[in-house]
Amino acid sequence: MIDMFHVSKSYDGNTKALDDVTIKIDKGEFLFITGPSGAGKSTLLKIIFGSESPTEGQIIIDGRNYYRIPRKEIPPLRRRIGFVFQDFKLLSNKTVYENVALALNVMGVGQREVRRRVLRILSYLKIQHRANFSPMSLSGGEQQRVAIARALVKEPAIILADEPTGNLDPELSIDTIELFKEVNNKGTTVIIATHDKSLIERYAKRTAHLEAGRFTY
């Protein structure tokens, strides 16, 4: 599903955020990308998401080569990927419902269908009672659920999550990972970037470890 060949990424020309990274991620896989802060985890996810392009190497998603992705091909790519951002990126001037609905609206889904799917995902994540609130009035854990709801509502083929447990207490962290496992059980490819070792130890899942932009298996 996702193939990266000798991908390198340098933001400023000398230091490499990613250095000759090669990885193959199959459809339906559950993968942890680990490594200390600054190792290049976020950069890797951004390259898959098309918000950064590799300096060198190839990235192939669903048989399409996305090295130097043309601007107009980014939206279709992102509609197939649900990204849970580290800082959530929720809009404070919109309600929880509107934030989640945006992911479907940009795809041109009809309003009745939008309503049905948004309410279903909100109740699945147990935040339906917050639908008409601003995300800013919610707790950190609730905000993260909204971010996850927005990523899941379009039923993407791939879920990318950047430090999804970074702001949560241990109990909520486990809930969150369990949620991703559930999604993964339904066939969605899940890739989680985290520096939380205890999390990885708890789940016997495939793990790719980054150090200074290189994989050390």
Partner: peptide, 16 residues
């Protein structure tokens, strides 16, 4: 501007 950024992140076309 935040809205524009988020719209792009969730896959909105330039036209949208």
């Amino acid at each position: 501007r935040d809205e524009i950024e988020v719209m792009r992140l969730v896959g909105a076309s330039d036209f949208f």
